[in-house]
Amino acid sequence: MGLPDNFLIAVRKGIMLNLPVVTSVVAYGFVCGVLSRQVDMAFWQVAALSGLMFSGTAQLLLAGLWATEVSIAAALVSVLAISLRYLLIAATCAPLLKSYPTAVRYFMASFITDENWAVAMAHRDRDTIGGALMFGGGLTLWVGWMMATLSGWYFGAIISDPSRYGLDFAFTAVFLSLVIIMAKGSKNHPLVTITCATIAALLADRFFGGSWPIISAGVAGASAAALTYKETEISS
């Protein structure tokens, strides 16, 4: 069992389809690189995270926690919480990758992110070439992310006051727009989820701090979604 005949054509198509997406990824990758330099992350640390972890949200989160004397356990629990969605999106990629040899399948899965996953899922031929589309998109995003974060790190040294350029706000802006865009595409009750998650986060921030706002928001928001789902099921 080898690679399908149209593999390279489909990978190239995935690259082309993800080119518009990569522009915004490069923008916040650069910001992530600058922030990493501001919190004294070393070059190899940024390169290892960008190249091997390949998760923008988790990397920005770590950069945010880096300066706060965070414990190893709290940092890793936060990463686990924010990356838990990969379990779900990788599971939905399983049918797209099932025709590939095992080693190839897992290698391709290393490149799953929100952006190329969404592009692959939105494609009408996803059952036949979706895996290769996702992989091609992943390669594009990987190259863009590496270049953006490492050049951000490099230029971070000469950007002495990041708040002057609003770069300290960039982290909030990136995730806030992600929340809104994801909520707009959600079929569930995103407003209920967001409201409950916000209340839980603010309470946890007030009384516990650290990464508790993230974890409390995750549990409260998802529970609210589950409860609302049950109500609509009964009423319909």
Binding site: M182, N188, T193, I194, T198, A201, A217, Y229
Partner: peptide, 27 residues
């Protein structure tokens, strides 16, 4: 992917990201 558990799992990403930004936005 469906039912109450599906709704819970589907809401996790939005809930987590909300928790990440809410304290900064409001405080």
């Amino acid at each position: 992917t469906t039912g109450r558990m599906g709704a819970f799992l589907n809401a996790v990403p939005i809930a987590i990201l909300t928790g990440l930004v809410a304290p900064t936005v409001f405080n």
